[in-house]
């Protein structure tokens, strides 16, 4: 599983304000875990992805498309 080498990703740790009026429901793009608040944000090719942490971004970015890829912010 994820035998490819870990690679640096151009991400940044983001801690947004929590809003109950306009709740943002994010999931880690790698593992699917719902993100409570702070997350590792990676922008690439005009897309922005959220991750639990940099490690999960390392495991995901650059991976070949796989069944478990899903669209970020698709409203789920």
């Amino acid at each position: 599983m994820n035998s490819r080498e870990s690679q640096p990703n151009p991400g940044v740790w983001v801690v947004p304000e929590v809003s109950y009026v306009d709740p943002q429901r994010r999931f880690c793009r790698y593992c699917g875990r719902p993100i409570a608040r702070g997350f590792w944000r990676v922008s690439s090719g005009g897309e922005t992805w959220s991750y639990c942490d940099a490690r999960h971004a390392d495991l995901d970015v650059g991976a070949q498309p796989a069944e478990h890829r899903w669209q970020e912010d698709r409203g789920c």
Binding site: R25, F27, C31, G32, R33, P34, H68, W70, R74, C76
Partner: peptide, 15 residues
Amino acid sequence: ITIIAPPGTIVNCAF
């Protein structure tokens, strides 16, 4: 232990 569960599925449902 790592768990991968795609959102929107029966193992990681969406609000």
